[in-house]
Simulated scan of single mutants.
Amino acid sequence: MSADGWALIDDVLRVLQMDRTALDAAVEHNDKQRLQVDGDRIRACQGHSLAGMPVTCEALENSWERVHPDHLLWHGTNRQALPAIQRDGLLPGRRTHVHLAPAKDSPVRRRSAVEVLLGVDSRDLAVYRAPNGVLLTRSVPPDAIVEADAVHPARWSGS
Results as ranks from 00 to 15, higher is better:
G52D: 09
E65D: 14
L91Y: 00
R43Q: 11
R87L: 14
Q86M: 06
D70T: 12
R109G: 12
W64A: 03
H48L: 10
A59N: 06
L91K: 09
S49D: 10
H75M: 04
A59R: 07
S112H: 15
A81Q: 12
V116T: 09
E65L: 08
A113I: 10
Q86Y: 08
H97T: 06
L73D: 04
P107Y: 05
A44C: 08
E65S: 14
Q86E: 14
H99E: 06
T96C: 15
G47N: 04
R79P: 00
A103F: 08
R41K: 13
L50E: 08
A84P: 00
N62E: 13
E58M: 07
L50V: 11
A103T: 15
R110T: 06
G89S: 02
L118Q: 03
E58N: 09
M53Q: 11
G47P: 03
L117R: 06
G47S: 05
A44Y: 14
V98D: 05
R110E: 00
S63R: 08
A84K: 13
G52H: 08
Q80V: 11
A84E: 10
G52Y: 06
H99S: 11
L117F: 01
P92Y: 01
R110Y: 00
I42V: 15
L91A: 06
P54H: 11
R110M: 06
G89I: 03
E58Q: 15
P69A: 05
C45V: 07
I85E: 03
H99T: 09
L50T: 13
K104T: 13
N62S: 12
L82W: 06
A113H: 10
D88C: 08
T77H: 03
V108G: 02
Q46A: 13
T56D: 01
G89K: 02
